[in-house]
Structure formats: C-alpha cells, structure tokens
Design a protein around this nucleic acid. Structure first.
Lengths: 164, 164
DNA sequence: CTGCACCTTCCCACAGTGGTAAGGTCAAGG
DNA sequence: CCTTGACCTTACCACTGTGGGAAGGTGCAG
C-alpha cells in the first residue's frame, strides 16, 4: 500500500506519516523496488492508534509511550490507567486555566457598554497595573497539553509593525 | 531604565521584550550611547499591558490588535467588546474540546481494572477502528487558542525509537 | 510519448519561549 | 590600574506539530 492509501485509510496525512517515521514514533516503513514506502494493515492500524491518541490530546511523545504500552503485552492495566489519568489531570488543569480566562474576560466585558463611546473597562483593565490577574489560577496550571491541529483556522489580522 | 529593570518591573522576560520588539509588537526601544535599550514608565506600562493580555490567552497577534485599540482613543467600546467576546468564544471552543477528551478518557478509564492484569479497555479502544472518536466535538473546535508559556513543565519520557 | 498523479527528499514557515555563545560596558573593590 | 561580576548586545539553536512547496523520479493510461 502506498503512503497515500495509508494516509487515506488512517486519517493521518502522508506528510505526518513521514514525520512520525522520521522521529522514530513509527517504525521505518518497508520500501519497494522503486523506493516507495509500502504499508500493510498492521501499519495502518498503528497509524489509526496514533491518530486516536492525538485526538485525545496526547502529545506525540505520550503517544509513543502509549504505543509502547500497547505493544508490551505484559504491562499492568494499572500502568495504563495511571498514565491516562495523569493526562486527564493535565487536561483538567488546562481547562480550569482557560475557564479562569473566560471568567475574567466575561466579567470585564459585562462592564463594557459596547456602544459608540470609546471608554471601555476591558482595555482600562489591561492598562491598569495590578488589575485582573487570572494568575493565581494560571500559576498552578503549567501542564503541557496543547491540542494538536489548530493551525488551519487562524485569525490573522496583526502583522504590520505597531508603530513604524 | 535597562532592559533588565523593565523586565523585572513588567514581568516580561528580557528575552521576550527583545522578541516583541523584533516582531513589531513593541516600538523599537530608545538606545543609549552604549547601545543599551532604554525604557521609561510608558514602555513598562505597555509591557504590562502585553503581559496581561497574554495571561488572558490572547495570542501575540491579538495582543497587537488590543494594543492598537487601546492607543486609538476614538475606537468604539463595542469594537473592543466584540473583539474580546470573539476571544471568549475561541476559549470556550477550546474548553469544550478538552472536556470532550477528558470525558472520553475518564469513561475508558472507568472500565479499566487498574490492577496487575494486562488487559485494558483504554488501549483496546485506541487500537480498535471506529471507536471513541471525540471527533464530532473536536471537528467544530478549530479555534487558535494555545495558552502561552507551557514549555517549562514537561513530561519527558519518550525519545527512543519505538522499534529499532 | 505525453500528461498526470503519485512518490521521494529537503528546506521554509508558523507561535512562543528558553538556552547559550561571543562579545561590549560598567561599576565596585583590590 | 586591573580584575571580577553583573549586566547588556546580537545571533544562532532547540522544542512541538503541521502544512507548503520545490526539484526530481515513477508508473500508468491514453
């Protein structure tokens, strides 16, 4: 099976398949005479596993650990469970961090007229020393979570020098 | 004021101050005879503004927009409010994405014995085509949120080739 | 044979942040 | 006066993932 087919079958782009192979997450693919990578069902299976783990927010690194756990038929289910639950804690830390942000922002916004007048408590707050920190919350939450694939839908609007 | 003092006073590292200047988020700093950057209270104020915006999860890009809004004394508060609320939506999209992940993981983990036996529904699920997707949720949430500063607290454990 | 779809490798970009190396500057203390 | 140490300067490199594209080979269909 060509890389294109494997990509289609697994939902992992050809680009990413090569990348995963290059960092050692994936075993080196078999090659055909012509140099093309050749995949079989087991490879596609691994790719789907990876895809799924990534969708659950596991980093590529953690995904490697999961794959290793999966291959190690003698691991204790407790190991897997604790691994997963550690990830859940990371996720939840991230969630409460984001929630603190939305709380603060909604609070500020609720005091903003939202009309033609220029005065706005949101900016005033940002511009005021010692105001709305969100940091007591944020300070605690230093997990590494970063959900994969986010780059497509961007907002793009800044990019000219602010002053010059 | 030296960059070090400005960093201390604003909570933005010297490194980041230079970076923000280099990408045009911050005006080019005044220089003294010796080439050292020189900051005054207004600069520190801007830095604190940036710091605060970043803590609220605004991207550097969005922070530039906020700074521009703040400097534009004639902007309507409605503009600021809608800008902030768009960000809140992004945050909330991210939150529900992460929540979907934790839900799925907690669900899987709840079916895992977590003992010495090797069989584990978590891995089984990852390894099974068509199982626990989280993707209907995730599909919708493609905002660009990515809270700043996360790199310090890493997990580090993977890095040897999975097969070789 | 031509054209098109696929494959290969390699380098670039993105967002932020930290690290570090090689050098200049400056003030304090011997 | 000279050394030491704390600061500053620039310029690179790393990380995490992902996509884009160039330059070239391959393979199949018409």
């Amino acid at each position: 099976m060509n890389i294109g087919k494997a990509a289609e079958a697994s939902g992992v782009s050809a680009k990413m398949i090569r990348y995963y192979e290059s960092i050692g997450l994936l075993a080196k693919a078999a090659r055909r005479e012509n140099g093309y990578r050749d995949y079989d069902e087991r490879d596609v299976h691994d790719l789907r596993f990876i895809k799924r783990a990534r969708n659950l927010g596991f980093s590529v690194e953690a995904t490697g650990d999961l794959l290793a756990l999966w291959r190690d038929k003698s691991r204790a289910s407790a190991d897997v469970k604790s691994f997963a639950m550690r990830h859940v804690s990371d996720l939840e830390a991230k969630i409460s961090e984001l929630q603190a942000m939305t709380r603060t922002l909604r609070h500020l916004a609720s005091h903003c007229h939202g009309d033609e007048r220029p005065d706005c408590p949101i900016l005033d707050d940002l511009a005021t020393p010692g105001a709305g920190e969100t940091d007591q919350d944020a300070q605690v939450n230093r997990a590494k979570v970063r959900k994969p694939r986010d780059a497509g839908t961007q907002i793009r609007s800044f990019r000219r020098p602010v002053t010059a």
